[in-house]
Lab assay of single mutants.
Amino acid sequence: VTTYKLVINGKTLKGETTTKAVDAETSEKAFKQYANDNGVDGVWTYDDATKTFTVTEMV
């Protein structure tokens, strides 16, 4: 189990959250659901070296 981080650069929501998951794909699903639940829709990137997802909304 690995800890993954999500950085949110939204128009109205900014911040970070973490989750523990067995792999990046599992954490990505959880993070995308979290973003969707909070009305964040944007461009996703992933940095495997830091286990960090970033979602950026276009303004």
Rank of each mutant, 00 (worst) to 15 (best):
T12Q: 10
G10E: 02
D47G: 00
T45I: 06
D37W: 06
V40A: 03
Q33I: 09
G42P: 00
G42H: 01
E25L: 12
M58N: 10
F31I: 02
L6F: 06
N9G: 03
K29L: 10
F31Y: 02
N36V: 13
D23N: 11
F53E: 01
K32N: 03
L13F: 15
V55F: 03
T45G: 05
V59R: 10
L13P: 04
T2V: 12
N36P: 01
F31W: 02
V7S: 03
T56C: 06
T56Y: 07
T3H: 07
F53P: 00
N9W: 12
N36E: 13
T52D: 00
T18N: 06
K11M: 13
V59W: 13
V1C: 15
A24N: 07
N9A: 08
T50E: 05
V55K: 01
V1A: 11
E28R: 12
G15L: 15
E16K: 07
K51H: 11
K11A: 11
N36I: 15
T12K: 11
K20H: 10
K20G: 07
F31M: 03
V43I: 12
G15K: 12
N9M: 13
G39E: 05
N9Y: 13
T50D: 04
T45Q: 08
N38W: 14
G42D: 01
Y4C: 04
K11S: 11
V7I: 14
M58A: 11
T2W: 11
E28L: 15
T56A: 05
E16T: 14
T50W: 03
D23F: 03
L13C: 15
K32A: 05
T26L: 06
K51E: 03
W44Y: 01
T26I: 08
Q33P: 00
Y4W: 07
K11R: 13
K11Q: 11
M58Y: 13
I8L: 08
D37Y: 08
T12W: 13
T12G: 09
A24F: 14
K51V: 02
V40N: 01
L6R: 00
D47Y: 03
E28Q: 11
M58H: 13
G42I: 02
E16V: 14
K51S: 05
A21N: 05
S27Y: 03
I8W: 08
Y46R: 00
N38I: 15
T3S: 07
E28S: 07
V7M: 06
G39H: 09
F53S: 01
Y34T: 02
T18A: 07
V59P: 12
E28T: 04
N9I: 14
G15R: 12
V40F: 10
V1T: 12
A21T: 06
K29G: 05
K20M: 14
K51Q: 09
T17L: 15
D37V: 09
M58K: 11
D47N: 10
F53D: 00
T18V: 08
V55H: 00
Q33F: 05
K14D: 05
D37T: 09
F31D: 01
N38R: 14
T3P: 04
T17E: 05
S27D: 01
G15Y: 15
A21P: 02
G15Q: 11
G39R: 05
V43F: 11
T26F: 05
E25K: 13
I8N: 00
D23S: 09
E25F: 11
T45M: 08
M58L: 13
V55I: 10
V43H: 09
Y34L: 07
I8Q: 00
K14I: 09
T56Q: 06
D47E: 06
A30H: 14
T52E: 03
K51N: 07
M58W: 12
G10Q: 05
T50Y: 04
E25Q: 13
A35M: 09
D47W: 02
E28V: 06
V59N: 12
V55A: 02
W44V: 01
K11V: 14
D48E: 13
T54Y: 12
K14Y: 09
T54D: 02
K29I: 11
Y34G: 01
K20E: 14
L6A: 02
K11T: 12
G39S: 06
N38K: 13
E28A: 11
T18I: 10
A24E: 07
K32V: 06
F31E: 00
D47I: 03
A30T: 14
N36S: 14
G39F: 06
V55R: 01
V43N: 07
T54Q: 05
T54R: 05
T50A: 06
Y46D: 01
V40Y: 06
A21K: 03
T2N: 12
T52P: 00
L13V: 13
E28G: 09
T54L: 05
T45H: 10
T12F: 14
S27P: 04
K51L: 08
I8K: 00
T52G: 01
G39W: 04
D23C: 05
D48T: 07
W44C: 01
D37R: 08
K14Q: 12
N36R: 15
E25N: 09
G39A: 06
K20N: 13
S27C: 13
T3N: 07
A49P: 06
D37G: 05
V1P: 10
T2G: 08
